[in-house]
Amino acid sequence: MSRIGKKPITVPSGVEVKIEGSLVKVKGPKGKLERTLHRAIKVAQEGSTLTVSPVADTKENKKFHGLTRTLIANMIDGCHKGYERRLTLVGVGYRGAKQGKGLNLSLGYSHPVYFEAVEGVDLNVDKNTTIIVTGASKEHVGETAAKIRSLRPPEPYHGKGVRYEDERIVTKVGKSGGKK
Rank of each mutant, 00 (worst) to 15 (best):
I148Y: 02
L67F: 08
R86T: 07
T171D: 00
L87I: 10
N104T: 02
V113N: 02
K172G: 07
V52K: 00
K127F: 09
K25I: 07
E165W: 11
L33A: 14
G96Y: 02
I72G: 05
Y109N: 07
L103S: 04
K172N: 12
H80Q: 08
G178L: 10
G28D: 08
L123Q: 04
H111K: 12
E46D: 14
I4L: 09
I132A: 07
R86I: 10
N124Y: 06
T51C: 04
E165V: 12
T171C: 14
R95D: 13
P8I: 07
P29C: 06
K127V: 04
K7S: 03
K147R: 15
S106K: 13
V141P: 00
P12M: 02
D166H: 08
N124Q: 15
S48P: 01
A97I: 00
K179A: 10
G178N: 11
E16C: 08
N128L: 02
S22P: 05
R85C: 04
D166I: 04
V118F: 02
V162H: 01
I41R: 02
K172V: 10
I72W: 06
N128D: 15
T129N: 15
I41W: 01
L151Q: 02
L123R: 05
K81M: 10
K27M: 11
A40F: 03
S2E: 08
T144I: 01
L103N: 01
E46L: 05
T134G: 03
A73Q: 06
L71F: 07
L89E: 08
G135V: 10
I169C: 14
A56F: 04
P54W: 02
G91E: 12
G108K: 05
E16Q: 14
I9T: 03
A56S: 13
L71M: 13
V15C: 10
K160F: 11
T129H: 15
P8M: 01
G82W: 13
K101Q: 13
A136F: 06
P54K: 04
T36D: 14
S106T: 11
Q99M: 08
G31I: 03
L37T: 08
K63P: 03
P8S: 09
P29D: 08
N104I: 01
V26L: 11
G66Q: 05
K7V: 12
Y94R: 15
N61D: 15
S48C: 05
A73E: 15
V92W: 06
T49H: 06
R163C: 12
G135D: 06
I148G: 05
V26C: 14
Y109G: 13
V26I: 15
S137K: 06
K18H: 10
H140W: 03
R163Q: 14
V55I: 14
I131G: 09
G14E: 04
H111L: 09
G135H: 05
L103C: 04
S110Q: 10
V125T: 09
D126Y: 11
T68E: 01
V43Q: 07
